[in-house]
Write a protein that binds this DNA or RNA. Structure first.
Lengths: 248, 248
DNA sequence: TCAAAAGTGTTTCGGATACACCCATGA
DNA sequence: TCATGGGTGTATCCGAAACACTTTTGA
């Protein structure tokens, strides 16, 4: 078995010579969305010495940027094969104002390519990287200060997600396998930041023809037990591809 | 006055040591759209030794990527202050299959950040760069083979432009100062690749409240002289910002 | 005088919105 | 038994689409 060197050494080497492994001046940042108890969440990392930031990483010399994003996501969440979408590249030379690293590869200017991901909250076990002490979910509407331009990146990610609701269904990656219509509605409402009419929402969703109504109800709630639904994966995928959406 | 070195030397130096000036592994490509005689055009460059490609360039060490795109556009078209929008980053390590440069900076893998631009055809005087022999407009639907993944980049650019018609007006940057309603309609039709109803188009456009009807008609045509319009720049800009579009 | 393009207005239809009643459940 | 949330159906409205007639102009 390969002997592990102490982490700080790895980090030292990485800071100075990361470009032996990774493309210089380029990074990938991920805005990872999850949904839990009626709230839209993002996954954040906390550096050991202070500020919060988005999970991110670098691109290996022979790796596509999409693969890099997928890898980074897997490292932080344990998930693969989730929904991941590139939405913007951020390349202001001053975007990393206040950078601490004084020397080596890592101290240079980075252009970052940003992705947002939609993941099933319940399947994620957040894992901090070697620079971080914490990796936790945070309510989208209660995000602490983030380093650099990460707050801006998050904002643009949310706008991109909202726009995508116009012509793409959302939910397969964010909801558990079985879910109720009110739960799905709450997802749409938190993404859009506005409440929707219960009956019209249901009609629209059913009209998309991507849901399967199950012969079960979700019991245990304080009131009338709502039906459970699941997505019809085939039809869902077709709707994603063909650009069929609820038109919000 | 600074003495100019022969171009091939500059090129030699550039190929080997471009990273003294530019960020390594990063480029910018521009899909420059124009509109002329009822046809949607893109500006293409032809390399001295063969293939066609999109106008592109590199990012200076202290330059933002948006500024780099603006600069590149200015170099090829002579225009500044035109509409420019980043739409995707292309980062497959194999995207530059068939690259010829064998050594130096330029031979390495490049991730490219792509922009599309909308420009007034009549104001552009295409200027080839030092690698190119030609710089000309080409009908969008009759594009020759392009190097690398540039055809793919063009395709994605066109799709992004089409999508943007949903919630943004288009035309201010593509049309001359004064234009007729049928001319504007032809612009929309060529972008969308479908014909539209004359009367409904006019109603929608006027409903956007971004046009000013002039007391002139365009004479010289073979038939009834159509009225001329111009954009109300203030209202147009507001519509762009607020995401007001014709909903195509 | 005729063909082809442009100006303008009305009807129609479908999808989104607004809205009401009944049912199930735990407190 | 009552408050709360869930299931379902219907009337309405607005905007988009479909559509026709008249006018102008050069050939």
């Amino acid at each position: 078995m390969k002997k592990k060197r102490p982490k700080f050494l790895l980090n030292e080497a990485f800071r100075k010579h990361g470009d032996r492994t990774f493309l210089p001046h380029l990074s990938v940042d991920c805005v990872i969305f999850g949904f839990h108890e009626g709230h839209l969440k993002v996954l954040l990392l906390k550096w050991k010495d202070g500020p919060w930031c988005l999970p991110g990483g670098f691109i290996k010399h022979k790796e596509s940027i999409d693969d890099a994003a997928t890898r980074i996501l897997k490292e932080r969440t344990g998930l693969d094969a989730i929904f991941l979408k590139q939405f913007h590249a951020f390349g202001d030379p001053l975007r990393e104002k206040g950078k601490r690293h004084q020397e080596g590869w890592i101290s240079k200017r980075f252009v970052t390519i940003a992705y947002y991901a939609l993941v099933d909250y319940s399947k994620v076990f957040p894992q901090p990287d070697s620079f971080s002490s914490e990796c936790t979910w945070c309510d989208v509407h209660a995000v602490p200060n983030l380093i650099y331009d990460h707050k801006q990146i998050m904002k643009v990610a949310l706008e991109a997600l909202q726009l995508s609701l116009n012509d793409h269904p959302v939910g397969y990656n964010l909801m558990p396998l079985k879910f109720t219509m009110p739960e799905l509605q709450r997802l749409y409402e938190t993404i859009l930041g506005q409440s929707l009419d219960r009956r019209n929402f249901q009609k629209r969703m059913l009209a998309l023809d991507i849901l399967v109504k199950l012969n079960e109800r979700k019991t245990g709630g304080a009131h009338k037990a709502p039906f459970l639904y699941r997505f019809d994966k085939k039809k869902y995928d077709r709707a994603v591809k063909r650009g069929l959406g609820a038109g919000f």
